[in-house]
Amino acid sequence: MKLLKYFMIGILFGIIMTKSEAVSWFRIQEMFRFESFHMYGIIGTAVILGAILFTILKRTQTKTIEGAPLKIQAKDMSIPRYLIGGTIFGLGWAMTGACPGPMFTLLGQGVWAILLVIGSAILGTYVYGLVRERLPH
């Protein structure tokens, strides 16, 4: 039962990813070519409203429904890790037109080719786990 609510939020998320058209390979090309405001509008609105939300949550010291502190953590500072990792991610994002959320959403739409993308994304995460000690962080 505890997990059911996450399933419901997930359904909502899949609907949002689709109706926002963030799952569209074409929208991602358009975004990286700066030929439409659409994706910037989505992310921009989310970041501005999200920043307001985080400010309120911190100020009111809101707790989870179970009374624990919210999972709002500061990330460890580094440059190479985020810059190199981010660049590799960006290459893949523009190549497949899908970041992890849309990948799973597209699967539900019956885009079976996305299974190759999800499978290789899991493989990529695995290889990172194997070689991470040798990478600059």
């Binding site: 590799i88 893949g92 190759l116 990529g124």
Partner: peptide, 24 residues
């Protein structure tokens, strides 16, 4: 498809997050 997926999976873990975790 496979090359792109691999880059997404490798890059996102290296960077510690994807669009949801970092950009949003």
């Amino acid at each position: 498809l496979i090359g792109g997926g691999f880059l997404v999976g490798f890059g996102t873990r290296y960077a510690g997050g994807c669009t949801s975790g970092h950009a949003i």
